[in-house]
Amino acid sequence: MTLTYVLQIYVFVLAGFVGFNIITRVPPRLHTPLMSATNAISAISIVGALVVAGSRYSLLASVLGFLAVTFATINVVGGFVITDRMLGMFKRGDAEKDGASQGAPHGAPGDNGSAPR
C-alpha cells in the first residue's frame, strides 16, 4: 500500500465527516431536494467516462465511453435542472402574498443556465 492510498483514505474519511455533519442539518422539508441534489452530484463519474470516450483506443472503447458519458450526462443535466425547478417552488409566505395567490401557475421557473452543459 502506497502513501497515495493512505492519503485517499484520509480524504474519504474527512469528506465523510463533512458530509455527515452537513447532511444531518438538512431539515426534513428539504429531504427530497437533498436526495435529488446528491443524485446529481454522484454523476461525477462523468469525469471517468469522458476520458474513456475521448482516448481513441478502439471502436468498442469509444462506444462504451459514449454510453457512459450519455448516462452520466442524463443525471448531471436532469438532476440539476429538476432540483433547481423543485427549489424554485419553495417560497416564503410573505413573498407569496403578492403575486402567486392569484392562483397563477408559475410553471417551471428559471430552468436555464443552471445545468452545466
Binding site: A49, G65, F66, T70, I74, N75, V77, V81, D111
Partner: peptide, 15 residues
Amino acid sequence: GGLLVGAAIGYPLGT
C-alpha cells in the same frame, strides 16, 4: 455525442 444525447434525454427529464 454523449454530452448531446445525454442532455437531450436529461433536460426533458428535468423539466
